[in-house]
């Protein structure tokens, strides 16, 4: 067992972990961040994507011990004071999710794509999301959501709440 100290969504955790433990298992099982999910065992699907020191990583592809001393942000930590992140709002507005299983990873990857390149072309968005699989949406509305966020300099102005009855 190895002792690690990791900050997850702003809270510091100190734990003994098996050296072989994956970060995704640490997040789900030790920290209780079940918003981050597992979709594969070959690092292909991206469902487990989180931010490590502000850059996206597949948390099934990082050992928990590698996160020692670092900062992890999950889907549960991107809304600030109850205000959804613009990317979360855009996913809701653009109907960029159906079953929602890929969504946490997809949102975190999409944020990373725009952090790298705030005004990407459709092609650049698509290539940027290539490591994240979605079986439900056909990606059409996911791309649209990212474009919507990219098109706005300030955080998107959207009516509050998920069921506020916004019409297109």
């Amino acid at each position: 067992m190895t002792r690690i100290t990791v900050t997850v969504d702003g809270t510091s955790y100190s734990d003994e972990v098996e050296p072989r433990m994956l970060l995704v298992h640490y997040l789900r099982e030790a920290v209780g961040k079940t918003g981050t999910v597992i979709g594969c065992d070959t690092s292909n699907c991206g469902a487990c994507t989180v931010h490590l020191d502000g850059r996206s990583v597949k948390s099934c592809n990082v050992l928990a011990v590698q996160a020692d001393g670092h900062e992890v942000t999950t889907i549960e930590g991107i809304a600030v004071n109850g205000e959804l992140h613009p990317m979360q709002k855009a996913f809701h507005e653009c109907h960029a999710l159906q079953c929602g299983y890929c969504t946490p990873g997809m949102i975190l990857q999409a944020i990373d794509v725009l952090n790298e390149n705030p005004h990407p072309s459709e092609e650049e968005i698509r290539v940027g999301l290539e490591g994240n699989l979605c079986r439900c949406t056909g990606y059409h509305n996911i791309v649209k959501a990212v474009q919507q966020v990219a098109g706005q300099d300030s955080p998107v102005e959207q009516p509050e709440g998920a069921t506020a009855g916004v019409q297109s």
């Binding site: 079940t34 918003g35 889907i75 996913f91 809701h92 079953c99 998920a162």
Partner: peptide
Amino acid sequence: KARRRKEDQRLITGRTKWTDN
């Protein structure tokens, strides 16, 4: 009407109840 989905709130914030959770 193109209602935005009621389901989304929990799914975009990670407060989901997958069986494995």
